[in-house]
């Protein structure tokens, strides 16, 4: 990839902007940790247009940067757990022909929430947080489907663009 650095800069900037836009949307479902995950849009698109290594790097850079700008050290830890698990699942599924972008994104959204829940269980040393599991599953399904639908449409429109 000749212009790798330049493209990666653009991807990072876009992911950070999505993280910022997300802080402007007041979502409070009475349940902590439920977010739209707009930045995941970039992760899904990069995963499909380039490879999992780029997506992994983008995911980590995005989480660390947005954590320092908008969140806290705690937020970084929880986001990393969710983000890495989600990326691993999506990278695995996107290479196979089982699901469309939407299914892959749903799996990513759900596994993101499960990853965060596991870290929360370890951090507070209680299984009580498992109470949130049903809500987090549904939340991951809905946000994952939304991100999947949008990424699918974007991917159709940028199918001639190759990031090289």
């Amino acid at each position: 990839m000749k212009h790798r650095a330049a493209y990666f800069g653009v991807f990072t900037a876009l992911a950070l902007i999505f993280s910022y836009v997300e802080t402007l949307i007041p979502v409070n479902f009475g349940i902590p940790g439920v977010k739209l995950g707009l930045a995941n849009l970039m992760i899904v698109i990069v995963l499909y247009k380039t490879n999992w290594r780029e997506a992994l790097l983008l995911s980590v850079v995005r989480i660390v940067l947005s954590g320092f700008i908008f969140g806290s050290l705690f937020a970084i830890l929880y986001s990393l757990a969710g983000g890495l698990l989600s990326l691993a699942v999506m990278a695995f599924l996107s290479r196979r022909d089982w699901f469309s972008v939407i299914g892959v994104s749903i799996a990513g959204g759900v596994s993101h929430n499960i990853g965060q829940l596991v870290v929360a269980m370890i951090a507070v040393q209680t299984y009580r947080v498992g109470y949130y599991l049903p809500v987090l599953l549904i939340a991951g399904l809905l946000t994952g489907a939304l991100i999947g639908v949008i990424s699918g449409q974007v991917l159709i429109r940028i199918r001639h663009i190759r990031f090289e």
């Binding site: 699901f99 939407i102 749903i106 049903p134 599953l137 991951g140 399904l141 489907a145």
Partner: peptide, 24 residues
Amino acid sequence: MKKNDWFLAAGIVIAAAVILLLQI
């Protein structure tokens, strides 16, 4: 959207419902 996507979504909804019922 593939048929498998719907199966995945349905599976997640069922899993969440079962866990919720067990909790209640």
